[in-house]
Design a protein around this nucleic acid. Structure first.
Lengths: 210, 210
DNA sequence: CCAATGACTGAACGCATGTATAGCGTAGTG
DNA sequence: CACTACGCTATACATGCGTTCAGTCATTGG
């Protein structure tokens, strides 16, 4: 089955999956067991647990970046949802979620990437006329991305609890389905009935820069 | 100083603070040290580490609920921001953040509470005419809250890193300041240029329920 | 055929952690 | 004063972790 690739690659895949399921603090011995390998071998190959994590991070970043261009990106973390659907990429999507949950520099990097993708997506929509222009497209993309990913995180099982990879796609679909109605409303009908607050803020903002 | 209260209360406060600073996985011995107490005593009083966490949760929930009515709640997690400003409540606000980061049932409970507060806040604005009515006010409040809190979480230091309570207020102010411009724009000018997507969704939605 | 290389294992080490236990000192009570 | 109750400490114990180490086995290159 999937046990073909020997050595490091097999370990890396097992790690990705186990970290996704049990969280990033899953013990090395558990990863070793999954890979059908001794704990010592992991150290032998990767040097340390921290290094294994780093390798997982690299893989995650690499794959998301590669798949980003393949998939029709729906912006705002839809990328992750689509990745999870892909079956083969479910462990990786789970790992990314766990990593976002855990914070740290890679989480920031991932958010950055997603935000950039969202910015492109919005710019395209803007050219097509379906998306409103923004005073600060970059900031808008960041905020939208952070909110989308953050809402996803809040729904994630806790650090101690396990994340069922088999149900990940279903789970994510339900999440987006739960959000889509309020979001469409929010994006179509202004939450605020008039522009007075925005104008007031803009006024005070430009005033400061004089 | 703040070392007056003896016994359990002193331990609880130390725990709240230490967990806020170092994360919920901070060792018991560290909490004990902060409280000027032996680790055994914590067990003696609280039975187990898990129980101490539970007590912290209760305290957190209790205080946020109590202060909710006191503060002018700005909805969408602004409550937390205001709590953190209060100096005395900074550790508690930090603990709440850590708890949200960690997930689990209390996190869900907290989100629920915040969502309810937001719903009330929006309803009030709706009565005053400043907030648009919604097809599903409850769902809208939930989505807004999850997004606001989630975005906050993504900005939080990682599990391993420490959270500086002294800088919490500043940090949170910066966060809101970074969000306010894009959010006001988003809430004042529809992101989508026309209602076609919303209408299409609503059509397909009612169609399913026939 | 032999030596060397490298994947790989099993046991062990050192450390940190939660918790149990035995005992100490002191305040309150008869 | 004797006794008890209790806050509290110090130590010990068990467990689980990352990592180290000595050595085994197979493959390969001379």
């Amino acid at each position: 089955m999937r046990e073909n690739p020997p050595g490091e690659e097999r370990i890396l895949r097992a790690a990705l999956q186990r970290f996704a399921v049990d969280g990033l603090s899953a013990p090395l011995r558990r990863v070793a067991e999954d890979a059908g390998v001794s704990a010592g071998l992991i150290i032998h190959h990767f040097g340390s647990r921290e290094n294994l994590l780093r390798l997982c991070d690299e893989r995650a970043l690499e794959v998301t970046r590669r798949e980003k261009s393949t998939l029709l990106t729906g912006g705002s973390g839809e990328l992750l949802v689509q990745l999870a659907q892909a079956e083969e990429y479910a462990p990786l999507a789970g790992y990314v979620l766990r990593r976002l949950q855990d914070g740290g520099p890679l989480a920031a990097q991932l958010v950055e990437d997603f935000a950039n993708a969202t910015e492109d997506y919005l710019a395209e929509g803007e050219r097509a006329g379906s998306i409103s222009p923004s005073r600060d497209p970059r900031a808008r993309a960041r905020v939208l991305t952070e909110m989308a990913l953050g809402a996803l995180l809040l729904q994630l099982p806790g650090r101690g609890d396990t994340l069922d990879l088999a149900e990940l796609p279903t789970w994510m679909r339900q999440h987006t389905q739960r959000m889509v109605a309020p979001l469409l409303e929010l994006y179509s009908i202004p939450l605020l009935t008039d522009r007075s607050m925005l104008d007031a803020y803009l006024a005070s903002d430009t005033e400061e820069n004089t």
